[in-house]
Design a binder for these strands. Sequence first.
DNA 1: CATTTTTCATTTGTCAGACAATTAAAAGTC
DNA 2: GACTTTTAATTGTCTGACAAATGAAAAATG
Lengths: 243, 243
Amino acid sequence: MKNATARPADLSAQIATAIRDAIVSGDLLADARLPSEAELADQFQVSRPTVREALKRLAAQSLIRTQRGASGGAFVNRITFEDAYSQQITTSTLLLSMNAVSFETACEARFALERACAPLSAARRGAAHLATMRREIRRQRGPSLTDEAFCASDVAFHRALVDGAANPVLSYQLAGAVEAMQPLMNMITYTARSREGIAALHGRIADAIEAGDGAAANAGLSDLERETQNLARDVLSARRGDA
Amino acid sequence: MKNATARPADLSAQIATAIRDAIVSGDLLADARLPSEAELADQFQVSRPTVREALKRLAAQSLIRTQRGASGGAFVNRITFEDAYSQQITTSTLLLSMNAVSFETACEARFALERACAPLSAARRGAAHLATMRREIRRQRGPSLTDEAFCASDVAFHRALVDGAANPVLSYQLAGAVEAMQPLMNMITYTARSREGIAALHGRIADAIEAGDGAAANAGLSDLERETQNLARDVLSARRGDA
DNA sequence: CATTTTTCATTTGTCAGACAATTAAAAGTC
DNA sequence: GACTTTTAATTGTCTGACAAATGAAAAATG
């Protein structure tokens, strides 16, 4: 009966939590300097290695950064969108691969999120976003493209679509969903015909974005989702047939 | 001229990266046991404290868990949706608070993501989700409700809406967006009239979900977004007036 | 023999003290 | 005043040790 809340965590975990709370609650502002390791060890009544373990935990979450030398120390890190991206991608990737999320579920989520962005992108995309989308479509039609390169181009296309919405929070959220799915997408072997089908749908979506027609873009995304799900189904059933 | 890639990171960071790569690439499967700290120290030619700092970094990202005692050690963690939730919420919260994302941007992202879920929720929501939504609406109409409690109820309502889509990947993605916005939402002081307006819109959305009408639900969400943006604008302009 | 208790080896958690490496500021020098 | 040297502060790393937890083997017990 020792479960529930009665488990005293590691000292280093406790200390990390205490400092993290201070950061999240705003008691410690960005770029503020934490006390030195020796002072922290004093304050928390633990040894320096224990304090260091706590600080490394925080560093792993990009909550602090450290600097050596006089007037060095640990500083509250102003987390960047890039930091957040990469963390989200690692987490999402592991979540998908280790929790055996079905391709269907992941795919549905991805396209639902993209449909959330498309209308905004149709209204606000810059010329550069549209140019990227067109360029990737051309690349997708090129012959002698490996399956992986095709997937990468696919990601680039969708990324441009999402970034066109000009909302960094959306871009950040989508990065995880789209990039984490790439390993799953790589399972699919693309035939020349399915590639042309996808590129054509991309073309329809790009046209809609160019015309500022969000609804049409969403219709294209829905068709693309159906197409992707069909391809995945074929691969899976073929694999079952083999085995 | 020592910048660029030429900066050798901490040993503990290098080791953490090496192990993380092994996990992400699938060389280390879930629940696999890592070598003991002493063995790792040997393999990497470093001392045990350094290895421990590396392991704590990984533990902070829920990539491993440790267990004491004989046949204990560090094990590759099968990351749960719950782990991912909480990580995403911390990251998103900090991102919003420290990068000075405007209320407008965050709000737009949040409602765009919710509109992505609503049609799915309309098609698949269970009775429990609908019941939760109705219950929260009743609560929101109750008198003597603090602003914070009103916000919490708001989150619960939207959470039920999202969970109704029955797609754990979407729920996970949305958790960050919705919960991270709560501090921003708490800035708003809700008058009796604005509360009734929000509750009424919630009612419309719940009706649409009950009727299985995704488009109507999205229309309701769009109106709610407008309403929320207006409230925030009022608060901000009032604050400017005060100062 | 079966079962319970005890012992024990393994492994993580924590501590203390030391030295190296880095770096900004202070002191010295021209 | 501009430049160089020294110094002190701080993180990074190592060594060695002990405590605490824990599962497994060994011993005791019926």
